[in-house]
Write a protein that binds this DNA or RNA. Structure first.
Length: 706
DNA sequence: CGAATTGAGTTTTTT
DNA sequence: ACTCAATTCG
């Protein structure tokens, strides 16, 4: 594509951002303003016109999904292949750098990467040893994580500490944690960033090498960077200043995990002469949706004001429904979903239900199930977090790296081989006494026969097993997985579904070496989520960031949920809740429907709920505002719930009930899903197995009741 | 060593 | 209400 072609279809601001090639540039991109478009076109322009090699453009995103999407879109713009390009997540980019240069910091380059749960088990182990209440491990882990994300060393933390006992203990755990990681030859996610920054700090020659290598730095979702990530980018860019950062401070919703919006503000200080461009034309939503979301976000102070506009027209008003209890809310949402679906304009995949906390999905799911509407809950446990998958990966890690104590602890008795806590304690002691890894300690115990024969026998079996698998080091990852499963008899007495998962794991490993595979599973959280079926998406507001749907429901717009009660007394956090709400609102393209319930069960307590304070900021003229005292329209069946079954209002006598069977001359036998309309316009929705769901005008479809 | 029972706590999440 | 985890019992 030529320079001219790359500009086609861009608005003036986008074009300006595209054509600014030298020096720092900050693009404040409102929701739905086509930021990815600008980034990808920029990338294409740099490689095509400026003849910059893809290997000289350092491009970072936060998620793999974003990185892949970007790669795809770029490769459709330029015909060259992107081999050797540097487009990836912060973590994968840092991994790449560290794999080649971490030895400068005294680490070995074959480190393994610990995920959240590995980190948790290591911290629990340390707490146990230091005799600190173990149940605190989650809090401790997250404190340490945020210290590392802010590049604070244990020493610095200690000196800045308030001298209260707990901080001292925390620092101790922190030191110990880093120490253990090192002994295990492992890095956690925070280390990947932190150590890369440290590498640049302490080794100017290495920094110089990368500065020369990367002529341009592109940062996506800049508002989500934490301090370490920002330092990283700053290091790379401060030589030539060719940094191109894209973000939206209004969509900063990850403060709780260390994101610092102030990086956007600092940016103008750190890179003098920065050009700031705002993208305010929105290509996603109707004007009504933009007005409503704008009225919400404009109440936040300290923001880069952006006023989104669209040429799409006003569109539907935004719906707000206030219902008596959460079940009513769910029912209302589901009924509306069905109504919309049956009108035929939108499919289920075009709709999403968003909520503040995962717990809220339950009621919605139940209501959807009752109506037989297909749905999927987005988020939740990722494939690689499943126990059986993690177990097998632990075996692989241990084989590649005998120092990996965390993996060893995980699988030493999985599947059961009679090695319990007593034996493990003995091993731990031996390892501590000699300053060797657990694996070495086991070897020693076996060699010196310093335990009872039964224990030695069991340990010996384990040793032989690991040694046997270690022999597979050079075989392919999928071979190795197969062998691990066989040698450990892992699949025995495992449920069918879990065996399936292992098969899936093997398939996903095909074609990679063990090292590559381990890297990938650490840095890629979920398998590519395929979504071929037509189903409603359910997810939290956080998960919805970056996505868009023609029809969006946001449920539970109540005080206590949005803003969440734990945030309600902290001003900063209320601002973040407001942004979160804003993110949710701006996901909608055509139809936006907000709901809330007057009474709701939260943690088994029935609570009287107030409408969210944010609702006060929405101008009523953009909304259909409906408060329901009780559920009026009860759809024939399913109204046996207490309270509002009184209106047995079967409005029209439909000839077909949901669930009854019919025969169609062409499609055969099907099940009636729904029946609506009246008179000559009576429509019936039938699911024909193997054919799919059909909507038929009763008048023309020659249905036969069976 | 492993199963069963009791008890505490309860946001959001990517890598 | 429900989950997850620790402790206790067999």
């Amino acid at each position: 594509m030529s320079k001219e072609e790359l500009q086609n279809g861009l608005n003036p601001q986008q074009r300006e951002a595209l054509l600014h090639t030298d020096g720092p540039l900050l693009v404040l991109a409102g929701a739905g303003s086509g930021k990815t478009r600008v980034i990808t076109h920029k990338y294409a322009l740099l490689t095509k016109e400026e003849k910059v090699s893809p290997s000289s453009i350092f491009t970072v995103t936060f998620t793999n999904k974003a990185a892949n999407e970007m790669k795809e879109r770029i490769s459709s713009l330029i015909s060259d292949d992107l081999k050797g390009c540097w487009i990836g997540t912060f973590h994968s980019q840092c991994n790449r750098i560290l794999r080649s240069d971490i030895t400068a910091l005294g680490y070995r380059s074959e480190f393994v990467i610990y995920d959240e749960s590995d980190r948790h088990s290591l911290i629990r182990h340390i707490l146990r040893e230091l005799k600190i209440y173990e149940a605190l491990y989650k809090g401790v882990a997250s404190r340490i994580s945020s210290l590392k994300a802010s590049m604070v060393t244990p020493e610095e933390f200690l000196s800045s500490g308030d001298g209260f006992g707990f901080d001292e203990k925390l620092a101790k755990v922190y030191i110990r944690f880093q120490d253990e990681l090192r002994r295990c030859n492992a890095l956690d996610f925070d280390d990947l960033i932190m150590l890369t920054v440290r590498l640049f700090q302490e080794h100017p020659d290495v920094l110089q090498k990368y500065r020369e290598k990367f002529a341009y730095i592109l940062v996506d979702e800049f508002q989500d960077t934490n301090r370490a990530q920002y330092q990283l980018v700053k290091f790379l860019a401060s030589g030539h200043g060719n940094i191109f950062a894209v973000g939206d401070d209004d969509q900063s919703i990850y403060r709780f995990r260390g994101a610092e919006v102030k990086n956007i503000l600092n940016f103008e200080k750190d890179f003098p002469g920065v050009k700031v461009i705002k993208l305010e034309q929105n290509y996603r939503s109707t004007q009504n949706i933009l007005d409503v979301s704008g009225s919400i976000i404009s109440k936040n102070p300290k923001r880069n004001v952006k006023t989104l506009w669209t040429d799409r027209g006003r569109g539907e008003k935004v719906f707000f429904y206030w219902l008596p209890v959460e079940e009513d809310e769910a029912k209302y949402v589901v009924r509306t979903i069905k109504d919309i679906y049956l009108k035929g304009v939108y499919n289920y995949r075009d709709m999403a239900v968003l909520y503040r906390i995962n717990l809220q999905s339950r009621v919605i799911e139940e209501a959807l199930r009752r109506e037989g509407i297909p749905y999927r809950v987005v988020g939740g446990m990722s494939f690689y977090e499943r126990k059986e998958v993690k177990d097998i990966i632990a075996y692989l890690r241990l084989c590649v790296n005998h120092h990996d104590n965390v993996s060893l602890r995980r699988i030493i008795n999985t599947p059961h081989r009679g090695i319990g806590s007593a034996t493990l304690n003995k091993i731990e002691q031996e390892s501590k006494r000699r300053g060797i890894s657990l694996f070495e300690a086991i070897r020693r115990i076996c060699k010196t026969k310093s335990s009872s024969q039964t224990v030695i026998d069991k340990l010996d079996v384990f040793l032989k097993l690991i040694n046997g698998i270690s022999g597979l080091k050079d075989s392919s990852a999928s071979e190795a997985i197969k062998s691990v499963v066989e040698l450990t008899s892992y699949a025995e007495e495992l449920e069918e579904q879990r065996i399936q998962n292992l098969t899936e794991l093997m398939i996903s490993a095909e074609g990679s070496s063990i090292d590559e595979f381990l890297d990938r599973v650490s840095l890629v959280t979920r398998l590519d989520e395929s979504m071929p079926d037509d189903s409603i998406s359910l997810m939290t507001l956080h998960t919805a960031k970056g996505l868009e749907f023609p029809v969006v429901f946001i449920v539970g717009i109540e005080e206590g949920l949005i803003p969440y009660f734990k945030s309600a007394d902290n001003e900063e956090e209320v601002h973040e809740e407001r942004r979160l709400f804003y993110v949710g609102l701006t996901r909608a393209k055509d139809i936006l429907c907000l709901t809330g319930a007057r009474r709701r069960r939260i943690f088994s307590k029935r609570q009287e709920q107030e409408p969210s304070r944010f609702l006060k900021d929405i101008p009523r003229e953009h909304c259909h505002w409906v408060e329901k005292a009780a559920c009026k329209k009860v759809s024939g069946n399913g109204s046996k719930e207490k309270g509002f079954a009184r209106n047995k209002a079967v409005v029209y006598a439909f000839p077909y009930k949901t669930g009854c069977r019919v025969r169609h001359p062409k499609w055969g036998i099907g099940v009636v899903r729904d029946c609506y309309g009246k008179g000559d316009d009576l429509k019936v929705c039938v699911n024909f197995p193997g054919v799919g769901i059909k909507r038929l005008a009763l008048k023309f479809a020659h249905l036969e009741r069976i």
